[in-house]
Structures are given as structure tokens and as C-alpha cells.
């Protein structure tokens, strides 16, 4: 176990999350992928905090968790809205940006 291995793991988790973010169509699945990516970021914070000293890494991780929770709340609200408007929660339905 080392900083490098932690970072590699975090990178791997992040990229898996990125894949999910890009490939999935269900808005809830996309939110899950974002959770994965945020989790990977938190891992980086904690790992650097551990190996480079100081409480700062954990402080950042706490803030990041709070941010993620807020994002989940708003994201789920949006998912419900989308579902209510279209009877489905596929993200392609939200294509108002073009129309």
C-alpha cells in the first residue's frame, strides 16, 4: 500500500465512473456514476492527507462529501421532474437545449 497505488486506484475508479457517466442513459444511473467519480476524488484527498501529512486532506474530503450530498439531492429532484414531464427518466428526453 502506497500513495501511488492509492492514486492509481482512484484514477481507475474515476475512469469507471466516467465511463458510466458517458454511456448510461438513465438519469439515476448517471447520478450513480457521478457518485463513483466523487468517491474517487475523496480517496485522493484522504490519501494525500495521509501520506503528506496534515488534516487538510480530510477537511477537503468532508467538504466534498457535503457537496456530493447536495448534488445528489438536486440531481434526484431533476430526475423526478424529468420523469414527471416525460413519463420516463432517460436523459435524451431533456433535449430542450436544441429546441
Amino acid at each position: 500500500m502506497s500513495l501511488a497505488s492509492c492514486l492509481l486506484l482512484a484514477a481507475a475508479l474515476f475512469c469507471v465512473g466516467l465511463y458510466g457517466l458517458l454511456a448510461r442513459r438513465q438519469i439515476v444511473a448517471i447520478l450513480l456514476s457521478i457518485e463513483l467519480m466523487a468517491n474517487a476524488a475523496n480517496l485522493v484527498f484522504v490519501a494525500f492527507g495521509h501520506y503528506r501529512g496534515g488534516a487538510l486532506g480530510q477537511v477537503f474530503a468532508v467538504f466534498s462529501i457535503a457537496l456530493t450530498v447536495a448534488e445528489v439531492a438536486v440531481g434526484l429532484a431533476l430526475a423526478m421532474l424529468l420523469y414527471r414531464r416525460h413519463g420516463d427518466s432517460r436523459v435524451e428526453l431533456a433535449s430542450e437545449m436544441k429546441r
Binding site: L21, L22, V91, E92, A94, S95, E96, M97, K98, R99
Partner: peptide, 10 residues
């Protein structure tokens, strides 16, 4: 410009 958010994210 597809208007689809996933495309923009991609």
C-alpha cells in the same frame, strides 16, 4: 449540436 447533455459531456 444535438441538444443532448450526454453528447456535450462526452
Amino acid at each position: 449540436q444535438t441538444g443532448l447533455a450526454p453528447d456535450y459531456v462526452l
